[in-house]
Simulated scan of single mutants.
Amino acid sequence: MDKPDARQETTLFAPGGYRYIPSVFQYSAGVIAAPGFDMVRVRLSGNPPLAQGFSLIEQFVKREGRPLAAFCACELRSPAPFDEAGFRAFNRLYVETLQRWGISDGETNPVARTNVCPAIDPPSEPSFHAFAFTIQRPTERPGFVVAGSGESVEGKANYRDHIIRLGDVSPEALREKARFVLGEMERRLRRLGVGWEATSAVQAYTIHDLHPFLADEIVRRGAARSGLTWHFTRPPVVDLEFEMDCRGMTQELVI
């Protein structure tokens, strides 16, 4: 089967050198480098708090000779899952910096994001774990990031009313939750014009045992071609139990 053309499934963010899947105001569903560009992922050692992290990212991106608009994806860590109102308030605060950087207009946001909550030794405030930015480098395998997604339909009035098997963490329910999330990952990959074979990393975020469905739901569909990184964390909103993201990168750094 022919892969979809990412140019038809995504929106170009020309100042940043990448295309994105439109989603909700706080983040896009995924990003892929535009022709003539590639992506680099940078993990921030120590997981600096949000304000400090933004400052470090601004300095780093400028040192690399890239505009702030090149900031295209990030991975955050928060102290504990938010309720619906708290999540909206946090998102507004986060987007304010992207508005100052000329990336978001407050309603449309091209930056992909994952935000999860460590169950053990969580940060005292929302913090940065990693980010990605674009560089000018032609490549036949453009870098991409699929944003984190849990077992609920996004873009609705709330998450709770659309959670798969709400409140049920039985093995059967967790399998169904994972199947929904994996399906969403595949939909986003298709919109970027790629598939599991292009991923260099796939990450799962849950405090529940994923071994009962690991082989059938994750490995057999090709989602663990490069292995699977399991983070003992919770998704960012109360009552969500399982989240995933993935990426395809040829260059990653730790600073």
Results as ranks from 00 to 15, higher is better:
Met1His: 13
Arg7Trp: 06
Phe13Gln: 03
Ala14Leu: 14
Ala14Glu: 14
Pro15Trp: 02
Arg19Trp: 07
Ile21Lys: 03
Pro22Cys: 10
Ile32His: 01
Asp38Tyr: 00
Arg43Met: 11
Ser45Met: 05
Gly46Lys: 14
Asn47Cys: 14
Asn47Pro: 08
Phe54Met: 13
Phe60Gly: 07
Val61Leu: 09
Arg63Ala: 09
Gly65Ser: 11
Pro67Gly: 11
Leu68Arg: 10
Ala70Cys: 05
Ala70Met: 04
Phe71Ala: 04
Ala73Gln: 03
Ala73Tyr: 04
Leu76Cys: 03
Ser78Tyr: 07
Pro79Lys: 02
Ala80Glu: 15
Ala80Gln: 15
Phe82Trp: 15
Glu84His: 14
Phe87Ala: 12
Tyr94Leu: 15
Gln99Ile: 11
Ile103Ala: 02
Asp105Glu: 08
Thr108Arg: 01
Thr108Val: 15
Pro110Met: 01
Cys117Asn: 08
Pro123Lys: 15
Ser124His: 06
Ser124Arg: 12
Pro126Ala: 10
Ser127Leu: 06
Ala132Met: 08
Phe133Pro: 02
Pro138Ile: 07
Arg141Gln: 12
Val145Thr: 13
Gly148Met: 02
Gly150Asp: 10
Lys156His: 04
Arg160Gly: 00
His162Lys: 03
Arg165Ala: 14
Gly167Lys: 04
Ser170Thr: 15
Glu172Asn: 07
Arg175Tyr: 06
Glu184Tyr: 11
Glu186Gly: 13
Arg187Ala: 13
Arg188His: 14
Arg190Gln: 12
Arg191Asn: 08
Trp196Thr: 12
Ala201Thr: 14
Tyr205Val: 02
His211Leu: 15
Phe213Leu: 09
Asp216Lys: 13
Ala223Trp: 00
Ala224Trp: 10
Thr229Gly: 10
Phe232Glu: 10
Phe242Ala: 07
Cys246Thr: 11
Cys246Ala: 13
Arg247Pro: 10
Glu252His: 02
Leu253Met: 06
Leu253Arg: 09
Ile255Lys: 07
